[in-house]
């Protein structure tokens, strides 16, 4: 982060507290509705029902059911973030570098804006209507080709079903974020690399990807958190029985299915830890990779 310009700072000492008062409403909002609630969870995760400090809640997370919920959630988030990044990157690159007509670009970005926000309950409906037991594609494949998706082992209400569904908002999010970054790659870099004897692959490996690395990584972390915290799509698709962390937490908040309120805190705390880890990893890698930035 650049330090603030020196000019205003020299003037500030006397006026500093007054100027900071201007942030009071924002700070109050952040404390009341973001930080305190989060703190409540974090502290609760380390409290016994009588209020005393304990690690028991975190230790109690170590059951087969909860472990597998975390593992499924992490796999799901990782896979959808990875595929979302790869496919989104491919589509954005096709539009920016692939020589596709310029007219495609605007509609693609608008559509991406829509699709990345078309998440949650209605998205689940759309996929049920398409790949569900009597969905459009399921029926079409069965009636026209005699292919029975279910017999082939495909089930929308499964891990891979969720992956396919989540990609509907993950890919457009990637397109939205990476397109400006691809635009930022100057034509001259590619040309300079070419006249210096580099192949297209060498240019991508030595110049373009290192330059894009921070954006790619940041988007990956964002997509990961996006999938990890998503409740509505999974809930509307599969109901409360699917064993992923956000669904488990949802059921716990509604009805204390774990039979221990403080275990709920620990469950939520685990979610914060994982998304925070993903983001710190991103920030750390980004700092390392951005030595060359102003």
């Amino acid at each position: 982060m650049p330090t603030a310009p020196k000019g205003p700072r020299l003037r500030l000492p006397a006026g500093l507290p007054v100027a900071w008062l201007g942030l009071l409403p924002f700070a109050a909002f952040a404390v009341l509705f973001l930080i305190l609630p989060t703190m409540k969870i974090v502290l609760g995760a380390f409290q016994a029902p009588d209020g005393s400090f304990t690690f028991q809640n975190l230790l109690d997370l170590n059951t087969d059911s909860i472990r597998s919920a975390y593992w499924t959630s992490i796999k799901l988030s990782f896979m959808t973030a990875l595929l979302g990044c790869a496919i989104g990157f491919g589509m954005a690159a096709a539009v920016v570098f692939g020589g596709l007509p310029k007219a495609i670009r605007g509609p693609l970005l608008t559509f991406s804006g829509v699709a990345s926000n078309f998440a949650g309950v209605p998205l689940a409906f759309a996929f049920i209507a398409t790949l569900g037991p009597v969905g459009l594609i399921t029926l079409w494949l069965r009636n026209e080709f005699g292919i029975n998706l279910r017999a082939l082992g495909f089930n929308l209400l499964s891990y891979w079903g969720l992956v396919i569904t989540y990609l509907f908002f993950q890919i457009p999010l990637m397109i939205l974020i990476i397109t400006p970054a691809l635009d930022g790659l100057k034509k001259e870099w590619r040309e300079a690399a070419a006249v210096l004897g580099a192949t297209g692959a060498q240019y991508w490996r030595m110049v373009a990807l290192p330059i894009l690395f921070p954006s790619l990584l940041g988007t990956f972390a964002l997509l990961f958190a996006n999938a990890f915290g998503a409740v509505a799509t999974a809930f509307a698709l599969t109901g409360p029985q699917l064993n992923i962390v956000p669904i488990k937490l949802f059921a716990q908040i509604r009805g204390d299915v774990l039979g221990n309120p403080n275990l709920g805190y620990a469950l939520a705390f685990g979610m914060i830890v994982i998304t925070a880890l993903a983001n710190f990893l991103y920030i750390w890698l980004r700092l390392r990779s951005e030595r060359w930035m102003k």
Partner: peptide, 27 residues
Amino acid sequence: KLPQARPFVEFVTLLPLVIPAIVVVFG
């Protein structure tokens, strides 16, 4: 007035992308 507060404010505005909504509402 407060360019030096920018990192802090930006960090806070990005928190909702990191902390899942379900955790916030649980809080």
